[in-house]
């Protein structure tokens, strides 16, 4: 309804691209909570997106579940998977956890390819279109607000403590396993909801869309924007999410440009576009007329 009205003002192609961007932002914020805030490396985020997408699609198509309830179910299923992945984080740290999640993600993709209910390699078509740009950006705002509040809470400080120094956090009485697993669960829940939005937006799902390439894409959004910075994640996703469309002038060379862009940003801003910047502080300085102090690269 609202989208219908918007279509008169905005080019439908832009609506298409921006809606997809919004879905990516939600998914990336999920990873932000896991990797950016809690410091748990995940190379398998697309799997949660996929679990959510297939769950939501199957719910609405085969079980007749209402759309919003299906989104919730998508989140819950992904969260359950997140808990499953979170437990090994007790034993595995750093790169090793990343590698294990990479393996998990690939296994999930192979399972999607082999299951009957997901349509296998043929993919799942005929999902009703329920997602529109208004719902997506409502979800974006809601997610940003929720994660912002979470980061500012006692719980969020404990997550940051686990990231900074797990052993010190344990000594201070923080049960690091609980925080790591719950961060995985919440982050996956968010990704699962994003998956549900994705399924009811594109109306077609294929396992190849949820492989490691997508996982790395989302990780790149988060790191390139500035690991641990919520505005950074949004900026990083926006820049990289729009890049393939913007770089269309590069014709067949556009993905080469995309690769170069990734390398250049990392070399000149290793901490990410907004990494290490306190935006509130920068804003105050601008208002007062001072020059923001950029930490040395």
């Amino acid at each position: 309804m609202l989208e219908e009205a918007l279509r008169h003002f905005i080019n439908p192609y832009y609506i298409q691209v921006l809606t997809l961007l919004g879905i990516y932002i939600v998914a990336a914020i999920g990873l932000h909570l896991i990797t950016g805030v809690t410091g748990q490396l995940s190379f398998g985020h697309a799997a949660f997106l996929g679990i959510g997408a297939y769950t939501a699609a199957i719910c609405t198509m085969q079980l007749g579940v209402p759309y919003l309830l299906a989104l919730l179910a998508a989140g819950v299923m992904a969260a359950l998977a997140g808990v499953l992945v979170g437990f090994p984080s007790l034993r595995l740290t750093g790169d090793y956890l990343g590698i294990a999640t990479l393996g998990f993600g690939e296994i999930v993709r192979v399972i999607f390819t082999n299951l009957e209910i997901t349509g296998g390699a043929r993919g799942l078509a005929g999902i009703p279109r329920k997602t529109d740009i208004v719902i997506v950006y409502l979800a974006v705002v809601l997610t940003i607000w929720a994660v912002y509040r979470l980061q500012k809470s006692r719980y969020g400080r404990a997550l940051a403590a686990v990231r900074e120094d797990e052993i010190a956090a344990e000594c201070m009485g923080v049960n690091s396993l609980w925080y790591k697993v719950s961060a995985f669960a919440i982050g996956s829940f968010i990704a699962g909801v994003a998956g549900g939005l994705y399924a009811h937006f594109l109306q077609y799902l294929n396992p190849v869309d949820f492989g490691f390439a997508r996982s790395f894409e989302i990780l790149t959004f988060v790191v390139l924007g500035g690991l641990g910075s919520l505005p950074g994640v949004i900026l990083g996703t926006t820049v990289l999410g729009l890049a393939p469309e913007i770089l269309r002038f590069g014709a067949v060379y556009r993905m080469m440009l995309y690769g170069v862009l990734m390398v250049l940003v990392m070399i000149f801003r290793p901490q990410g576009l907004l990494g290490g910047l306190n935006l509130a502080q920068v804003w105050r300085r601008i208002v007062r007329g001072g020059r923001p102090r950029v930490p040395a690269a």
Partner: peptide, 23 residues
């Protein structure tokens, strides 16, 4: 250039190189 950078920066850079060479 990223030897002293945060842990994930060179990984992202590596993925960028990989996309570049494939394309």
């Amino acid at each position: 250039p990223l030897r002293r950078a945060p842990r994930l920066a060179p990984i992202i850079s590596a993925i960028g190189v990989s996309i570049f060479l494939q394309t």
